[in-house]
Design a protein around this nucleic acid. Structure first.
Length: 296
DNA sequence: CACTTGACCTGTCCGC
DNA sequence: TGCGGACAGGTCAAGT
């Protein structure tokens, strides 16, 4: 569920909290959550100082002063939560209005302890997320990063670049095309549905049946919605929290996502839920007409 | 090669 | 109340 706005929010929080911290210990109990955590690798993070944290698509890069970086993907239910040593949520079980009451909890996969006794917890209920410790040159060689498309919020990402890249997926649905991380990096199910509603494009339409003006509009909506979602701290559907355990509020402003059965804010018709590109998909059947191409 | 589907997981919800 | 199954959706591998 963490998509670009959520990961960007986590990144900003970590950048306020972590730089300068010195790692003194690492603990993990889910091997696939930290697949290269052998002792001779971990030694490159023990004693290391945290530098800047970066984001690429939906993944995070926590740079260390040893030349190594922690490469993290939160996938669907991953969280990176930082807790001061005197925080009541740390093991005390004091419920509050955040989603995090006590840490570590049963979803905690990795715990990183700093010299000042504060901790960073990597929690992941569904165990799809992972982190890897890699030297900078290997990070650039990671096929996952190499294949990622452009960053939507980069000023260089114009509607012309967007159109050119989306058109390479002519035979697939427009929703599948914008979810493809090699076309552009960072859009997931929530913002795909929201952008397509805003641009009045039915998600199941083939790319070849969507005209250039529509793609230009879609590009504008994607960029605008991602920026707005970052302002709102991202979307919390079930699990997502930022680096301090706080929920995001974008879904209060969502027009279609998880709003099936409600009235469309533009035309008043009922929002429907269907399945497109293998994902739950929310549309207004009036605002987003499904038009099949005249060919075939 | 282009594209779709299933696997990876756990927690929740729904019908019986 | 319990149980089976569907569903949630990011990414990769396997299948068509």
């Amino acid at each position: 569920m963490p998509e670009l706005p959520e990961v960007e929010t986590v990144k900003a929080g970590l950048n306020r909290l972590l730089p300068g911290k010195v790692i003194i210990a690492e603990h993990h109990d889910w091997p696939r959550g930290f697949p290269n955590a052998e002792a001779d690798v971990i030694e490159f993070m023990i004693g290391a100082q945290i530098m800047q944290i970066e984001r690429r698509g939906k993944s995070l890069v926590i740079n260390l002063n040893t030349g190594y970086s922690l490469f993290v993907h939160l996938k669907m239910t991953g969280q990176l939560v930082y807790i001061q040593s005197d925080d009541v949520r740390w093991g005390a079980g004091h419920p509050d209005d955040s989603l995090i009451s006590a840490l570590p909890n049963k979803s905690t996969r990795v715990t990183i302890t700093f010299k000042d006794k504060s901790k960073l917890f990597f929690n992941d209920q569904r165990k799809f997320g992972w982190m890897k410790l890699l030297p900078a040159p290997m990070l650039e060689e990671e096929s996952f990063i190499k294949k990622l498309g452009p960053e939507p919020l980069d000023p260089m990402f114009t509607h012309k670049i967007f159109t050119q890249r989306v058109r390479k997926r002519a035979g697939t649905s427009i929703k599948a095309a914008i979810l493809d991380q090699t076309v552009l990096a960072g859009v997931g199910n929530i913002y795909a549905d929201e952008s397509l509603w805003a641009a009045r494009i039915h998600p199941a339409r083939r790319v070849r049946d969507v005209d250039d003006n529509e793609l230009k509009q879609l590009h504008q909506e994607i960029v605008g919605i991602l920026r707005f979602a970052i302002e709102k701290g991202g979307s919390t559907d079930k699990n997502y929290v930022d680096a301090e355990g706080r929920k995001g509020s974008y879904l209060e402003f969502a027009k279609v996502f998880r709003r099936e059965g409600q009235e469309c804010k533009r035309c008043g018709r009922i929002i429907e839920k269907s399945r497109v590109a293998g994902r739950g998909t929310h549309t207004c059947s009036h605002c987003q007409q499904f038009v099949d191409g005249a060919d075939k």
